[in-house]
């Protein structure tokens, strides 16, 4: 069965998330040999701190067997920040109705071959169908997904061939990686479900989800957002000083006329925006 863990409920599913990070460490760190950071047997990167949505597959014993991570393409995501090599230095897609999916993996050790509910094939299709259904439910119409050529073959064989690609196939460790496009259409979801013989709702109900929750549920921490919301409309004196100091440092460190112009332009913009007091302090020499 499938559960979606996001910023709203992640505090309740620490155990599931830990198992998921451990699965990612085994798959991306060991099996695929990607250059990922692994600490305490868990693969966690800076995007996991951004409250992404995780679609997680759990077997009948409550153990994590598959997972994938979704982020908005309007804000920071992997293709814009760390997978830019795939885009060959080009700009990533940005749309309110396109999500990026990364870190798609299944536990090939816990699952068997064949086509039963406990097989790699079924778990893969169930996760694909669930992630497309979750995206569709959220008003998303397309997904750009970072995958390796093996996963690309799996997609094609499961009657879920990408309708297009962006960028180019690029080495990412032992295997290359690429960015494929998938539509979140009823037709595609139906094809995947038919291929694996998936019937009915794949998402677990509230009772099943509650059974997987951590023993104690801590309160969600609103302090950061509260602090930002109550920060007030303009930078305080300390921030102003830091910004002015920054402009000063940029200007002093300038090695060429162009760099000095750039530093002065930044100071100008900050001044126009009312964020620093002095546009051209006396130490700015043009």
């Amino acid at each position: 069965m499938i559960i979606v863990v996001d910023g709203l409920n992640r505090d309740r599913y620490g155990r599931l998330l830990d198992e998921m990070f451990a699965l990612r460490a085994r798959v991306f760190g060991k099996r695929l040999g990607w250059e990922v950071d692994i600490k305490d047997g868990k693969e966690i990167d800076q995007f996991d701190a951004l409250d992404p949505a995780y679609v997680i597959g759990v077997n009948d014993n409550g153990k994590v067997v598959s997972c994938v991570r979704a982020l908005q393409t309007t804000g920071p995501h992997m293709l814009s920040d760390v997978f830019s090599a795939i885009l060959d230095g080009d700009q990533p897609l940005r749309s309110p109705t396109i999500w990026e999916s990364t870190r798609f993996c299944v536990d090939t050790e816990a699952l068997d071959r064949g086509k039963t509910r406990n097989s790699v094939s079924y778990a893969t299709c169930e996760l694909m169908a669930a992630s497309l259904e979750y995206a569709q439910e959220s008003g998303i119409s397309d997904i750009v997904t970072v995958i390796d050529p093996i996963m690309d073959r799996v997609l094609k064989r499961s009657d879920c061939a990408p309708y297009g690609y962006v960028g180019k196939t690029t080495p990412m460790g032992k295997v290359p990686a690429m960015a494929a496009l998938l539509d979140c259409s009823d037709e595609r979801i139906e094809k995947i479900r038919n291929f694996a013989g998936i019937e009915g709702n794949v998402f677990m109900d509230e009772d099943a989800a509650a059974a997987l929750a951590d023993p104690v549920a801590p309160e969600i921490d609103h302090s950061l957002f509260d602090a930002i919301m109550s920060a007030g409309p303009q930078p305080d004196a300390e921030t102003r000083n830091m910004l002015e100091q920054y402009c000063h440092d940029q200007a002093s460190a300038a090695q060429s006329r162009d760099e000095l112009h750039a530093a002065n332009r930044l100071a100008g913009v900050l001044f126009e925006a009312g964020m620093i007091n002095r546009r051209k302090p006396k130490f700015f020499v043009c």
């Binding site: 709203l8 409250d51 959220s138 957002f225 509260d226 109550s230």
Partner: peptide, 18 residues
């Protein structure tokens, strides 16, 4: 209410519409 409105503060942590 702006300091405890969950339609703002809680929803801000989601990537999907809440």
């Amino acid at each position: 209410f702006q300091h405890r409105d969950p339609t703002l503060l809680t929803a801000a942590r989601s990537i999907a519409p809440v």
